[in-house]
Design a protein around this nucleic acid. Structure first.
Length: 295
DNA sequence: AATTACCACAACCGCAACTAG
DNA sequence: TCTAGTTGCGGTTGTGGTAAT
């Protein structure tokens, strides 16, 4: 059957770097009319480009809400953490970083962060049963992320409500623990430094919780979280299958186990008393300098 | 001053998912 | 349900700038 190429190369459409005049034509047109059909846009805007090229230029460069300038330490940290969870799902990562595009994040990862992490010995997958199988390894990472998030929410719940019963304070859970999640998410929202909980309470975490028995979101190509949310049956919340921690002490033990596992097996996290960080204390900022001196 | 090597980022390409008829 | 067209994503390449020799 075959299909038509997205850009008709027989028409001699222009390629390569955009000129300021082209930028202006594109930006003016979209701001006046919206992009509508990308396929038709070039003709309507008077551009000798393919629609794909126009879309890319707009989304990666001309869009007014794009944040310029270097990545902040917080953004760097977020990228590393999110990448550890969802892998090369740049669009998902970008969705968590307002003003940043997937292309920008991808470039930044490939040119900066990957090298830095490699120098720290964190870039390569850990040895183990999942080694050599990216999908299995990824699922293992995601499952660890889930447990991690649940453990943290458990701690939040138990610390924010002394009256909360030990059973309710444990995470693991049942569908009825949604209030625990809600409480955790609410608290997480007030603690923007904790990217992990922000992520967990976002669409990404939500899609995972709902599709727990299926492939993790990172393995579901082009299923954005909203769609997943709509499609997903009302699966029970995470931990339905768990009768784990039934009191705070147990929750703390699980929490510590997770810290140990994540740190030792995945090389991802560094626990610290009363808080949590991907990086060791006093090293929150992922800078060239700090990383250079680390090794 | 010329050349080479490296880096950062913009842009392209191909594939797969999505959608409308 | 099938098919053709459209859109979005992720990997890769190209290009311009800068540092090193």
């Amino acid at each position: 059957m075959g299909r038509a190429p997205c850009c008709d190369r027989t028409k001699g459409l222009k390629k390569g770097p955009w000129t300021p005049e082209e930028d202006k034509l594109l930006a003016d047109y979209i701001q006046a009319n919206g992009h509508g059909s990308w396929r038709l846009l070039p003709k309507l805007a008077g551009l000798n480009r393919c629609g794909k090229s126009c879309r890319l230029r707009w989304t990666n460069y001309l869009r007014p809400d794009i944040k310029r300038g270097p990545f902040s330490p917080e953004e760097q940290k977020s990228i590393v953490q999110l990448h550890a969870i969802v892998g090369n799902k740049w669009s998902m990562i970008a969705a968590q970083l307002p003003g940043r595009t997937d292309n920008e994040i991808k470039n930044y990862w490939n040119t900066h962060l990957k090298k830095q992490l490699r120098r720290m010995g964190l870039a390569e997958p850990p040895p183990g049963p999942a080694a050599g199988c990216p999908a299995a390894r990824h699922m293992a990472q995601w499952e660890t992320a889930r447990l991690e998030a649940e453990a943290r929410l458990s701690l939040l719940a138990s610390s924010s409500s002394g009256a909360m019963s030990a059973t309710a304070a444990t995470t693991t859970t049942s569908a009825s623990s949604s209030s625990t999640y809600a409480a955790g998410a609410e608290k997480a929202a007030s603690e923007p430094a904790d990217i992990f909980l922000r992520l967990w309470s976002s669409d990404i975490g939500d899609s995972f919780r709902r599709r727990k028995t299926a492939a993790p979101p990172a393995l579901v190509k082009r299923k954005d979280a909203a769609v997943i949310k709509q499609e997903a049956p009302a699966l029970p919340g995470p931990g339905d299958d768990s009768s784990a921690a039934s009191n705070e002490k147990e929750a703390l033990e699980v929490y510590q186990m997770l810290l140990d596992f994540a740190g030792e097996e995945l090389g991802l996290f560094h626990g610290r008393h009363g808080g949590f960080s991907l990086f060791p204390p006093h090293d929150d900022v992922l800078t060239e300098a700090s990383l250079d001196t680390a090794f």
